[in-house]
């Protein structure tokens, strides 16, 4: 069965506290508490989606003994690719020694571009078009200065090597729910995204995750209690807890994959990193329920069962080790690193 052969993560080490952002904009600690985001990760001045994707991919390759020349496809999903035209995927392929006998492309679907890449790799592997596929979700997204999104827009990524042999976790089924819903977008040439405020909640995030989750459970014939872990797209610390509850999952099930309160929303890296954090601690036969969400809008759901093979891989570096390696910076340094000195009107 098709599944995850290996996985790797990367989160930059710089952190800015929500309270520090609030201080600069004349707000108080209620903002961080309200969002359930207390610190978020910040990429260094020499980091971008290409470097984060390469580190995550290299970490995935380190954990297994797959020869990179056997990788038949590389897809990188992000909403902050370094180039508007020139793929990140080829940089990653070159940097892990894969290619040239492979296909590659970059994906964009807001925060679910990485899980869309996983689905594509599943199809290519299952149909025997390729032996292994590498799917990466990573981002260094930004929120406009002073906007609510500035508190949560963070950086990070995770890579998944998909194959049929020696899988550490089988993907039993994937199902998606997609509509044309303009809840959050960024026009070509614009520096920061825009969003529909409260419209991003019920008609967007909740509608798609609920429908996708219910649709997946129905098609497999399972219920929430059948799962050891659950991870939902986590734009803040509150939404995934709420949607989990609405679906019948417990806090115990979602807490391992819930990273946003400590590192912020890594956008295309969000669900992938949550899944990676779960795999870091999962045991054979654990069942995992994962549903991503991308604005625009859609959700990809996955029903995953961990196999015995997970015991054979060395989990380091784990997601928790990245989270623990943290250096707090102030808003001035954050602005310098993120080149936010132009506030518009150019």
């Amino acid at each position: 069965m098709v599944g995850i052969v290996s996985y790797g993560a990367y989160v930059p080490r710089y952190r800015i506290e929500a309270n520090e952002i609030a201080r600069v904009w004349g707000k108080d600690e209620s903002i961080g508490k309200g969002l359930g985001v207390f610190t978020k990760s910040v990429p260094g001045p020499d980091e971008d989606v290409a470097t984060i994707s390469v580190e995550a991919a290299r970490n995935a390759m380190k954990k297994c003994s797959v020869n990179p020349s056997e990788i038949g496809a590389v897809y990188v999903g992000s909403e902050s690719h370094p180039y508007a035209v020139k793929p990140t995927a080829t940089i990653v392929a070159e940097a892990i020694g894969a290619g040239p006998h492979l296909t590659a492309a970059d994906y964009e679907f807001a925060c679910k571009a990485g899980t869309a890449a996983i689905q594509t790799c599943m199809g290519l592997v299952d149909s025997n078009m390729i032996k292994y596929g590498l799917a990466i979700g990573s981002d260094t997204s930004q929120g406009a200065p002073g906007d609510a999104l500035e508190y949560s827009a963070a950086a990070g990524g995770a890579a998944f090597l998909i194959g049929k042999e020696n899988v550490i976790a089988e993907i039993n089924k994937t199902y998606s729910f997609t509509t044309d819903t303009p809840d959050f977008w960024r026009r070509e040439g614009e520096k920061y995204p825009s969003h529909g405020g409260r419209f991003t909640g019920e008609p967007a995030y909740f509608k798609h995750i609920m429908n996708c989750a219910k649709g997946l459970l129905e098609r497999i014939g399972t219920k929430p209690s059948d799962y050891k872990y659950a991870v939902f797209h986590q734009p803040n610390g509150k939404f995934p807890v709420k949607v989990g509850k609405m679906l019948g999952f417990t806090n115990d099930q979602i807490k391992t994959g819930l990273l946003t309160p400590r590192i912020g929303n890594t956008y295309s890296g969000s669900t992938p990193l949550g899944l990676a954090a779960i795999l870091d601690v999962a045991s054979p036969n654990d069942r995992i329920f994962a549903v991503s969400y991308g604005s625009g809008a859609g959700s990809d759901g996955f029903d995953i069962t961990v196999t015995e093979k997970i015991m054979e891989i060395n989990g380091n570096p784990t997601v928790e080790s990245f989270i623990a390696d943290s250096k707090i910076i102030d808003y001035a340094t954050y602005v310098r690193y993120r080149k936010k000195l132009h506030l518009g009107g150019e």
């Binding site: 260094g44 020499d46 980091e47 971008d48 290409a50 470097t51 390469v54 580190e55 290299r58 940097a95």
Partner: peptide, 9 residues
């Protein structure tokens, strides 16, 4: 001791 990383130059 050091190890190499992949970064933007």
């Amino acid at each position: 001791p050091v190890e190499s990383v992949f970064r933007k130059i």
